[in-house]
Simulated scan of single mutants.
Amino acid sequence: MTIQKILKMKNKEKIVMVTAYDAPTAKILEKAGVDIILVGDSLGNNVLGYDSTIPVTLEEMIIHLQAVRRGAPNSFIVADLPFLSYGYNIEESVKNAGLLIKNGANAVKIEGGAQNCEIIKKCLNIGIPVMGHLGFTPQSLNMFGGYKVQGKEESAKKKLLDDALALENCGVFSIVLEMVTETIAKEVTEKLSIPTIGIGAGRYCDGQVLVFHDIVGLNPEFKPKFSKTYANTFEIMLNAIERFKAEVKEKTFPSKENVFEEGGK
């Protein structure tokens, strides 16, 4: 997959993007043939035990990005710039974006609208592709006052569309639309020449992204309306551990097949 191929998929073929935070997951996604792997700062919620994406550091992102690249050497990988790694200083923002590229990303994702255009242009000038992210942007959780659907009011719709057009004009190759009404997501998608990738943005985006852990049912207590669970691996894993525990307690594991003997294999 390349940026050029992603751009050509608009209005022709839906784009599939899934998050990964480690090598085994990345290996599964590459074998499944997903179009884009996202190393999201959502690793904070799904892997590191944080209550939001805000505590995630650049160093943590790099460790997980490196793992994903090792597991999916041939995939197109986008990595999130985490909170406070960009925005306050252009030079530092571009440097941090470059570190993600150096450590295995094909592109970086930056949350926010027109206010980031100068950073995006600087990134593009030195060869760092950028994906945008609008609507509910998790790093701005405290500003939104919680997980709230965006784009309901006319002023919010206008700002979303203006930001999307601004991001397109400054050179992003696609935009994630998160938790926005289907109506505004459809309007934005139709007005842009670059692809939109939705998560809780309805049926009319050019692609869809979901978190791996939600797809395979590893977060049974977390069931957002916009997501869908395709397997219950939490129960499968729980059952496997319970069986292992029982066999150890009952002294049936290890059995003769699991031990090494002199002169044996």
Rank of each mutant, 00 (worst) to 15 (best):
L100D: 02
G263F: 06
L238K: 14
F212H: 08
S155K: 14
L238G: 12
K186I: 03
H213S: 09
A32R: 08
V78Q: 05
R70F: 14
R203D: 12
V172D: 00
Q4K: 13
N46D: 05
I128N: 03
A97E: 01
A79S: 13
S85H: 01
P138C: 09
E111V: 09
V39R: 00
K245H: 08
D206E: 06
P129C: 10
T183C: 02
D206G: 12
L210T: 05
L58Y: 00
K121F: 11
V18W: 02
A32S: 15
V209P: 02
L134Q: 04
E235C: 11
I28E: 07
G207E: 06
I28M: 12
Y204E: 12
G135S: 06
L141P: 03
G217Y: 10
A114Y: 11
F76N: 03
L58W: 01
P195Y: 11
K102I: 10
I15D: 00
S75D: 03
G263R: 07
V176G: 02
K12G: 02
L167I: 11
Q4R: 11
V16M: 13
N46A: 13
A231L: 15
A72V: 01
V78F: 07
R243Y: 10
T2D: 15
S140Y: 06
Q4I: 06
Y86M: 07
G40Y: 00
F173I: 03
N142A: 08
K152D: 04
